[in-house]
Nucleic acid binder design. Structure first.
Lengths: 224, 224
DNA sequence: TTATTTCTGTGTACGGTAGATACAGTTCGC
DNA sequence: GCGAACTGTATCTACCGTACACAGAAATAA
């Protein structure tokens, strides 16, 4: 259902009144709501109201809410990039940072893409353009897939973490508040957090990215 | 709100009738529903019906649904393990595999733990016990935190991926079906998937785990 | 031109959700 | 025994997604 909607071309009928809305416009309205108030605030009613129409009119453009969210995700992630960096490692770094940027620009995309769901053309395009840059490495097909999956997962995790801190004061405030009271039960956690207050999320992303790519580079070197 | 509920002790009042339910029993009923039919099937009504009570009676034990899910997650993740393996790397491997096991046993926990939310005692205990095993490494506090965050994120990603394949035939069926039609647009993806059909998720998890820990080991060695 | 067909947006209705509130019954401390 | 405190229940509001019937608009066929 959703997969046909994402991949199938939608032919405009010739008869009848001109449609007042467009699929893209509806999705953009949904994205605006999600950006401002979170994915939970996105309802048919809300999106339709944002456009000045009734919720039922949206069903002329989409089969249901699942498809709305799917299209929103596709447009939020956007077209896959043209990677400028030469060499597989800088290219993967660039790819990872660009993907993180998309996630950070629309933090709700992480929430919207958990669980079983079909991928859209853009999302597949992102995978394709990363795989293209590591095609020549001495890695098997599954290994290449797993490599970019780990990188994408790392970006998702960090975007989620960054979004959690966004509305809050400093670091993951909930943790801090709890540690102030139960710190003695978690000495290592307390100690590790004491040395924080630096770059935060940016630092964390680059640290993980470097470790993952170091690991990939080790494997590649061992096979050359 | 949720954080006080997870961390604050609940004192039983002395007067009045005996409670017919327990918080643990309610959470377990919720877990049973989520295991069998997914997190979406968990509603106050459904959980109460499972116990033979009306939904409003649950509000005597929990402030709301958010707290129910939080308690469900805590019980599903369970007590942090006592890591048997000696040495930091085998210990982290054990920790990662155990965590993945918990996620796989209750796939909805991944879905239930996206976005900003307070951590419970068990979840913090998992972090603590991993941090304890890498406390002596030449890594800064944030680096130690980021290390286990990357590992946890990898486990989450894989559990999610495994859950997506669970109800389906072979590999991520949606991708396969799409590639059958639009394969020429994604040559690298097609090629990479052609060499699959092996261990699948298990293989993918071990691959990523090895790469990440290789990267950490490189960093540790470079500082010794 | 008129009639017909097809599509648009809307109004209504239904079953589901979370939760507030008011209430009747039970059980303890005094 | 009595009153206070607590239990579970019934009722109510406010949403949610969406199925369906319908009036009006636009393009085609007559």
């Amino acid at each position: 259902m959703t997969v046909e909607f994402l991949w199938g071309g939608r032919a405009r009928p010739t008869r009848g009144p001109k449609p007042a809305l467009t699929l893209e416009g509806i999705a953009d309205a949904g994205i605006a709501v999600a950006d401002a108030e979170g994915l939970a605030a996105v309802s048919m009613q809300r999106v339709a109201a944002e456009l000045g129409y009734t919720k039922m009119s949206l069903y002329r453009y989409l089969p249901g809410k699942a498809e709305l969210v799917a299209v929103m995700v596709e447009r939020a992630i956007g077209e896959p990039p043209a990677l400028a960096e030469p060499g597989w490692r800088p290219a993967l770094e660039e790819w990872s940072r660009l993907l993180l940027g998309r996630y950070l620009a629309h933090p709700w995309t992480v929430e919207a893409t958990v669980g079983r769901r079909p991928l859209g053309p853009y999302e597949m395009g992102w995978m394709e353009c990363a795989l293209d840059r590591i095609a020549e490495l001495p890695l098997s097909g599954p290994e290449r897939l797993d490599t970019i999956a780990v990188l994408a997962g790392h970006g998702r995790m960090l975007a989620q973490q960054a979004a959690a801190m966004l509305g809050e004061a400093e670091m993951s405030t909930a943790i801090a508040a709890v540690l102030r009271e139960h710190g003695e039960r978690f000495p290592q956690l307390t100690a590790a957090l004491a040395g924080a207050a630096d770059g935060g999320a940016d630092q964390a992303f680059e640290y993980g990215l470097a470790r993952i790519l170091d690991g990939v580079e080790m494997l590649v070197r061992s096979r050359s």
